[in-house]
Protein backbone atom coordinates (compact mmCIF):
# COMPACT_ATOMS: atom_id res chain seq x y z
CA UNK A 1 0.00 0.00 0.00
CA UNK A 2 0.94 3.63 -0.54
CA UNK A 3 1.12 5.60 2.69
CA UNK A 4 1.37 9.29 3.40
CA UNK A 5 1.97 10.98 6.75
CA UNK A 6 -0.25 13.61 8.31
CA UNK A 7 2.52 16.19 7.86
CA UNK A 8 2.94 15.32 4.18
CA UNK A 9 -0.82 15.47 3.69
CA UNK A 10 -0.96 18.88 5.36
CA UNK A 11 1.82 20.39 3.29
CA UNK A 12 0.25 19.00 0.12
CA UNK A 13 -3.18 20.44 1.10
CA UNK A 14 -1.52 23.83 1.62
CA UNK A 15 -0.42 23.78 -2.01
CA UNK A 16 -3.94 22.79 -3.16
CA UNK A 17 -5.69 25.71 -1.43
CA UNK A 18 -3.91 28.15 -3.72
CA UNK A 19 -5.30 26.57 -6.82
CA UNK A 20 -8.71 25.21 -5.84
CA UNK A 21 -11.64 26.05 -3.63
CA UNK A 22 -11.02 23.56 -0.84
CA UNK A 23 -13.78 22.24 1.37
CA UNK A 24 -12.95 19.97 4.33
CA UNK A 25 -14.24 18.92 7.77
CA UNK A 26 -13.89 21.81 10.19
CA UNK A 27 -14.86 22.30 13.78
CA UNK A 28 -17.52 25.01 13.80
CA UNK A 29 -18.44 25.77 17.42
CA UNK A 30 -18.24 22.12 18.35
CA UNK A 31 -19.93 20.85 15.19
CA UNK A 32 -17.90 19.11 12.50
CA UNK A 33 -19.05 20.38 9.11
CA UNK A 34 -17.67 20.34 5.58
CA UNK A 35 -16.66 23.98 5.16
CA UNK A 36 -14.35 26.03 2.95
CA UNK A 37 -10.80 26.16 4.37
CA UNK A 38 -7.91 28.51 3.65
CA UNK A 39 -5.13 26.44 5.25
CA UNK A 40 -4.69 22.82 6.29
CA UNK A 41 -4.56 24.01 9.89
CA UNK A 42 -8.32 24.49 9.82
CA UNK A 43 -9.00 20.89 8.87
CA UNK A 44 -10.11 18.26 11.37
CA UNK A 45 -8.50 14.89 10.60
CA UNK A 46 -10.20 12.87 13.28
CA UNK A 47 -13.99 13.03 13.17
CA UNK A 48 -17.08 10.85 12.97
CA UNK A 49 -19.74 11.84 10.46
CA UNK A 50 -19.90 15.55 9.62
CA UNK A 51 -23.33 16.82 10.63
CA UNK A 52 -24.22 17.82 7.06
CA UNK A 53 -23.30 16.11 3.80
CA UNK A 54 -21.33 17.58 0.88
CA UNK A 55 -24.56 18.22 -1.06
CA UNK A 56 -24.26 21.97 -0.43
CA UNK A 57 -21.10 22.17 -2.59
CA UNK A 58 -22.62 20.42 -5.63
CA UNK A 59 -26.27 21.42 -5.34
CA UNK A 60 -26.00 24.50 -3.12
CA UNK A 61 -28.73 25.23 -0.56
CA UNK A 62 -29.05 28.62 -2.25
CA UNK A 63 -27.57 29.13 -5.69
CA UNK A 64 -27.80 32.09 -8.02
CA UNK A 65 -28.75 30.62 -11.40
CA UNK A 66 -29.12 33.79 -13.41
CA UNK A 67 -28.23 37.44 -12.99
CA UNK A 68 -30.83 39.56 -14.72
CA UNK A 69 -30.45 43.26 -15.38
CA UNK A 70 -33.40 45.40 -16.40
CA UNK A 71 -32.46 48.75 -17.90
CA UNK A 72 -35.66 50.49 -18.93
CA UNK A 73 -37.33 47.99 -21.25
CA UNK A 74 -34.11 46.12 -22.02
CA UNK A 75 -33.24 42.91 -20.23
CA UNK A 76 -29.96 41.02 -20.14
CA UNK A 77 -29.58 37.56 -18.61
CA UNK A 78 -26.29 36.04 -17.50
CA UNK A 79 -25.61 32.56 -16.20
CA UNK A 80 -23.74 32.30 -12.93
CA UNK A 81 -21.12 29.54 -13.08
CA UNK A 82 -18.07 29.31 -10.81
CA UNK A 83 -14.65 29.50 -12.48
CA UNK A 84 -12.39 27.61 -10.08
CA UNK A 85 -11.94 23.93 -9.50
CA UNK A 86 -13.10 22.53 -6.18
CA UNK A 87 -11.57 19.89 -3.95
CA UNK A 88 -13.65 18.34 -1.22
CA UNK A 89 -11.36 16.65 1.26
CA UNK A 90 -12.27 14.14 3.93
CA UNK A 91 -15.46 12.98 2.22
CA UNK A 92 -17.07 10.02 3.94
CA UNK A 93 -17.95 7.23 1.47
CA UNK A 94 -21.69 7.75 2.04
CA UNK A 95 -21.26 11.41 1.15
CA UNK A 96 -19.74 10.42 -2.18
CA UNK A 97 -22.59 7.98 -2.70
CA UNK A 98 -24.97 10.97 -2.34
CA UNK A 99 -23.86 12.87 -5.46
CA UNK A 100 -23.57 9.58 -7.35
CA UNK A 101 -27.28 9.16 -6.63
CA UNK A 102 -28.13 12.70 -7.75
CA UNK A 103 -26.06 12.14 -10.93
CA UNK A 104 -28.59 9.53 -12.06
CA UNK A 105 -31.21 12.29 -12.33
CA UNK A 106 -29.29 15.55 -12.79
CA UNK A 107 -26.66 14.27 -15.24
CA UNK A 108 -28.07 11.17 -16.83
CA UNK A 109 -31.69 12.19 -17.44
CA UNK A 110 -32.14 14.59 -20.36
CA UNK A 111 -31.69 17.48 -20.24
CA UNK A 112 -28.77 17.53 -17.77
CA UNK A 113 -28.81 20.27 -15.15
CA UNK A 114 -26.31 22.92 -16.24
CA UNK A 115 -25.28 24.02 -12.76
CA UNK A 116 -24.99 20.62 -11.15
CA UNK A 117 -23.02 19.31 -14.16
CA UNK A 118 -20.68 22.24 -13.83
CA UNK A 119 -20.09 21.67 -10.11
CA UNK A 120 -19.56 17.95 -10.66
CA UNK A 121 -17.04 18.57 -13.43
CA UNK A 122 -15.04 21.07 -11.38
CA UNK A 123 -14.96 18.96 -8.21
CA UNK A 124 -12.55 16.27 -7.00
CA UNK A 125 -13.60 14.13 -4.04
CA UNK A 126 -10.87 13.00 -1.64
CA UNK A 127 -12.45 10.45 0.66
CA UNK A 128 -11.70 9.39 4.22
CA UNK A 129 -12.86 5.90 5.15
CA UNK A 130 -14.83 5.42 8.36
CA UNK A 131 -13.27 2.94 10.81
CA UNK A 132 -16.75 1.83 11.89
CA UNK A 133 -20.50 2.55 11.58
CA UNK A 134 -21.50 5.61 13.61
CA UNK A 135 -24.77 6.19 15.47
CA UNK A 136 -27.70 5.60 13.08
CA UNK A 137 -25.45 4.55 10.16
CA UNK A 138 -26.59 1.72 7.90
CA UNK A 139 -24.59 2.24 4.68
CA UNK A 140 -23.88 -1.48 4.43
CA UNK A 141 -27.64 -2.13 4.02
CA UNK A 142 -28.00 0.18 1.01
CA UNK A 143 -25.03 -0.81 -1.10
CA UNK A 144 -22.27 1.13 0.62
CA UNK A 145 -19.49 0.45 3.10
CA UNK A 146 -17.42 2.52 5.55
CA UNK A 147 -14.39 2.08 3.27
CA UNK A 148 -16.19 2.05 -0.11
CA UNK A 149 -14.05 3.86 -2.69
CA UNK A 150 -16.57 3.54 -5.54
CA UNK A 151 -17.78 7.11 -5.91
CA UNK A 152 -14.60 8.84 -4.79
CA UNK A 153 -11.56 10.06 -6.75
CA UNK A 154 -9.12 9.18 -3.97
CA UNK A 155 -9.71 7.24 -0.76
CA UNK A 156 -7.62 7.68 2.39
CA UNK A 157 -7.66 5.09 5.15
CA UNK A 158 -6.10 5.55 8.53
CA UNK A 159 -3.06 3.35 9.25
CA UNK A 160 -0.30 3.52 11.85
CA UNK A 161 1.62 6.74 11.32
CA UNK A 162 -0.53 8.11 8.54
CA UNK A 163 -3.01 7.31 5.81
CA UNK A 164 -3.13 4.63 3.12
CA UNK A 165 -3.79 6.30 -0.24
CA UNK A 166 -5.98 4.59 -2.89
CA UNK A 167 -6.19 6.40 -6.17
CA UNK A 168 -9.57 5.63 -7.72
CA UNK A 169 -9.88 7.86 -10.78
CA UNK A 170 -7.65 9.61 -13.31
CA UNK A 171 -8.92 12.92 -11.96
CA UNK A 172 -7.79 11.88 -8.47
CA UNK A 173 -4.38 10.70 -9.69
CA UNK A 174 -3.75 14.03 -11.37
CA UNK A 175 -4.69 15.99 -8.27
CA UNK A 176 -2.52 14.02 -5.84
CA UNK A 177 0.51 13.80 -8.15
CA UNK A 178 2.37 16.12 -5.75
CA UNK A 179 1.49 14.19 -2.58
CA UNK A 180 4.45 12.52 -0.88
CA UNK A 181 3.79 8.78 -0.45
CA UNK A 182 5.92 5.76 0.40
CA UNK A 183 5.34 2.12 -0.42
CA UNK A 184 4.73 -0.03 2.64
CA UNK A 185 3.83 -3.68 3.26
CA UNK A 186 0.47 -4.69 4.68
CA UNK A 187 -3.05 -3.38 4.29
CA UNK A 188 -5.30 -1.06 6.29
CA UNK A 189 -7.52 -2.68 8.91
CA UNK A 190 -11.00 -3.49 7.69
CA UNK A 191 -13.67 -1.32 9.33
CA UNK A 192 -15.91 -2.86 11.93
CA UNK A 193 -19.46 -3.19 10.69
CA UNK A 194 -21.20 -4.75 13.65
CA UNK A 195 -24.94 -4.50 13.99
CA UNK A 196 -27.93 -5.97 12.27
CA UNK A 197 -28.55 -5.22 8.62
CA UNK A 198 -31.62 -3.11 7.86
CA UNK A 199 -33.99 -4.91 5.46
CA UNK A 200 -34.49 -2.90 2.27
CA UNK A 201 -37.35 -4.24 0.18
CA UNK A 202 -37.20 -3.96 -3.62
CA UNK A 203 -39.37 -1.25 -5.29
CA UNK A 204 -42.08 -3.82 -6.19
CA UNK A 205 -42.74 -4.61 -2.55
CA UNK A 206 -43.65 -1.00 -1.83
CA UNK A 207 -46.61 -0.53 -4.14
CA UNK A 208 -49.12 -2.62 -2.15
CA UNK A 209 -48.19 -0.68 0.99
CA UNK A 210 -49.26 2.72 -0.35
CA UNK A 211 -52.50 2.56 1.62
CA UNK A 212 -51.01 0.87 4.69
CA UNK A 213 -51.29 2.39 8.17
CA UNK A 214 -47.48 2.42 8.47
CA UNK A 215 -47.59 6.02 7.23
CA UNK A 216 -50.04 7.12 9.86
CA UNK A 217 -48.03 5.38 12.57
CA UNK A 218 -44.72 7.03 11.66
CA UNK A 219 -45.99 10.25 10.11
CA UNK A 220 -48.53 11.34 12.69
CA UNK A 221 -45.89 12.75 15.04
CA UNK A 222 -43.94 14.51 12.28
CA UNK A 223 -43.54 18.23 12.96
CA UNK A 224 -43.06 19.13 9.27
CA UNK A 225 -39.74 20.69 10.32
CA UNK A 226 -38.01 19.32 7.18
CA UNK A 227 -34.68 18.61 8.91
CA UNK A 228 -34.69 15.09 7.40
CA UNK A 229 -34.55 16.49 3.88
CA UNK A 230 -32.13 19.25 4.86
CA UNK A 231 -29.52 16.80 6.15
CA UNK A 232 -30.15 14.20 3.43
CA UNK A 233 -27.32 13.69 0.90
CA UNK A 234 -29.80 12.63 -1.82
CA UNK A 235 -32.90 14.81 -1.33
CA UNK A 236 -32.77 17.11 -4.33
CA UNK A 237 -36.13 18.91 -4.49
CA UNK A 238 -35.77 22.59 -5.21
CA UNK A 239 -37.71 25.79 -5.52
CA UNK A 240 -36.84 28.67 -7.83
CA UNK A 241 -37.49 32.33 -7.04
CA UNK A 242 -36.38 35.82 -7.98
CA UNK A 243 -34.91 38.35 -5.62
CA UNK A 244 -34.33 41.99 -6.43
CA UNK A 245 -30.81 42.87 -5.26
CA UNK A 246 -30.58 46.46 -6.45
CA UNK A 247 -33.08 48.96 -7.71
CA UNK A 248 -32.69 52.56 -8.74
CA UNK A 249 -31.84 55.04 -11.51
CA UNK A 250 -33.75 53.00 -14.10
CA UNK A 251 -31.75 49.85 -13.41
CA UNK A 252 -33.03 46.77 -11.59
CA UNK A 253 -30.69 43.91 -10.78
CA UNK A 254 -32.34 40.61 -10.10
CA UNK A 255 -31.01 37.22 -9.07
CA UNK A 256 -32.92 34.11 -10.01
CA UNK A 257 -32.09 31.71 -7.23
CA UNK A 258 -32.59 28.02 -6.64
CA UNK A 259 -33.07 26.86 -3.06
CA UNK A 260 -33.47 23.45 -1.47
CA UNK A 261 -37.03 22.43 -0.86
CA UNK A 262 -38.66 19.57 1.00
CA UNK A 263 -41.61 17.34 0.11
CA UNK A 264 -42.19 17.09 3.86
CA UNK A 265 -43.18 20.74 4.12
CA UNK A 266 -46.81 21.71 4.65
CA UNK A 267 -47.25 23.80 1.51
CA UNK A 268 -45.10 21.78 -0.86
CA UNK A 269 -48.07 20.79 -2.98
CA UNK A 270 -50.27 23.80 -2.45
CA UNK A 271 -51.22 24.99 -5.93
CA UNK A 272 -52.47 28.39 -7.08
CA UNK A 273 -56.02 28.66 -5.79
CA UNK A 274 -55.18 26.86 -2.56
CA UNK A 275 -55.65 23.18 -3.39
CA UNK A 276 -53.14 20.96 -1.57
CA UNK A 277 -52.93 17.41 -2.89
CA UNK A 278 -50.71 16.21 -0.03
CA UNK A 279 -52.40 17.85 2.90
CA UNK A 280 -51.34 15.64 5.82
CA UNK A 281 -48.06 14.67 7.48
CA UNK A 282 -48.49 10.90 6.97
CA UNK A 283 -48.99 11.28 3.21
CA UNK A 284 -45.93 13.54 3.02
CA UNK A 285 -43.78 11.07 4.96
CA UNK A 286 -45.11 8.36 2.66
CA UNK A 287 -44.00 10.33 -0.39
CA UNK A 288 -40.51 10.85 1.03
CA UNK A 289 -40.18 7.15 1.84
CA UNK A 290 -41.60 6.00 -1.49
CA UNK A 291 -39.39 8.47 -3.34
CA UNK A 292 -36.27 6.96 -1.78
CA UNK A 293 -37.10 3.30 -2.08
CA UNK A 294 -39.55 3.02 -4.97
CA UNK A 295 -39.82 6.07 -7.23
CA UNK A 296 -36.13 6.99 -7.44
CA UNK A 297 -34.86 3.47 -8.16
CA UNK A 298 -37.80 2.85 -10.56
CA UNK A 299 -37.22 6.07 -12.48
CA UNK A 300 -33.44 6.54 -12.33
CA UNK A 301 -31.78 3.39 -10.98
CA UNK A 302 -30.13 3.99 -7.62
CA UNK A 303 -31.85 3.92 -4.24
CA UNK A 304 -32.50 7.39 -2.85
CA UNK A 305 -30.80 6.56 0.45
CA UNK A 306 -27.12 6.14 1.30
CA UNK A 307 -27.62 4.98 4.90
CA UNK A 308 -25.81 7.92 6.50
CA UNK A 309 -28.32 7.98 9.35
CA UNK A 310 -28.39 11.77 9.60
CA UNK A 311 -32.21 11.95 9.36
CA UNK A 312 -32.43 9.53 12.26
CA UNK A 313 -30.20 11.47 14.64
CA UNK A 314 -31.65 14.84 13.53
CA UNK A 315 -35.36 14.11 13.83
CA UNK A 316 -36.77 15.93 16.88
CA UNK A 317 -39.55 13.35 17.27
CA UNK A 318 -37.45 10.24 16.61
CA UNK A 319 -38.90 9.21 13.27
CA UNK A 320 -36.47 6.52 12.19
CA UNK A 321 -36.20 5.52 8.53
CA UNK A 322 -34.80 2.12 9.55
CA UNK A 323 -37.98 1.46 11.56
CA UNK A 324 -40.02 2.39 8.49
CA UNK A 325 -37.92 -0.07 6.48
CA UNK A 326 -38.46 -2.75 9.14
CA UNK A 327 -42.23 -2.21 8.97
CA UNK A 328 -42.22 -2.35 5.19
CA UNK A 329 -40.31 -5.64 5.34
CA UNK A 330 -42.69 -7.09 7.94
CA UNK A 331 -45.82 -5.98 6.08
CA UNK A 332 -44.40 -7.48 2.89
CA UNK A 333 -44.12 -10.76 4.73
CA UNK A 334 -40.46 -11.11 3.89
Amino acid sequence: MKVTTLDALRSWLDTVVGEYDVVAPRDVDGHVLYRPVATSGEIVFSYERPELSVKDYLLPATEVLLRVEKRGGEVTVEENLADRGQVIFGVRPCDAHGPATIDALFLEQEPPDTYYSHHRARTVLIGMACPQLWEGCFCTSVGGAPDDATHLDVLLRRVDGGFAVDTVTEKGAKLIAGLCVEERDGAPDAPTTEGEAVPVMPPDAWRPLFGDNIWMRHGERCLSCRICTYVCPTCRCFDVADRVVEQGAGITRIERIRVWDACTSTNYRRAAGGHNSRPTKPVRLRNRSFCKFRYYPEDYGPLGCVGCGRCIVSCPVDIDITEVLQDVAERSGR
Binding site: C237, F238, V240, D261, S277
Partner: peptide, 19 residues
Amino acid sequence: LEARMHCGIGKCGRCNMGE
Protein backbone atom coordinates in the same frame (compact mmCIF):
# COMPACT_ATOMS: atom_id res chain seq x y z
CA LEU B 1 -53.07 18.02 -15.57
CA GLU B 2 -51.78 21.03 -13.75
CA ALA B 3 -49.37 20.94 -10.83
CA ARG B 4 -47.12 23.29 -9.00
CA MET B 5 -43.64 22.91 -10.51
CA HIS B 6 -40.31 24.69 -10.56
CA CYS B 7 -38.33 23.22 -13.43
CA GLY B 8 -40.60 21.56 -15.99
CA ILE B 9 -37.84 19.05 -16.82
CA GLY B 10 -38.28 16.37 -14.16
CA LYS B 11 -35.66 17.55 -11.66
CA CYS B 12 -37.32 19.67 -8.98
CA GLY B 13 -39.50 16.86 -7.65
CA ARG B 14 -42.61 18.95 -7.16
CA CYS B 15 -45.17 17.50 -9.57
CA ASN B 16 -44.81 13.74 -9.04
CA MET B 17 -47.79 11.42 -8.95
CA GLY B 18 -46.05 8.37 -7.59
CA GLU B 19 -43.21 7.62 -9.97
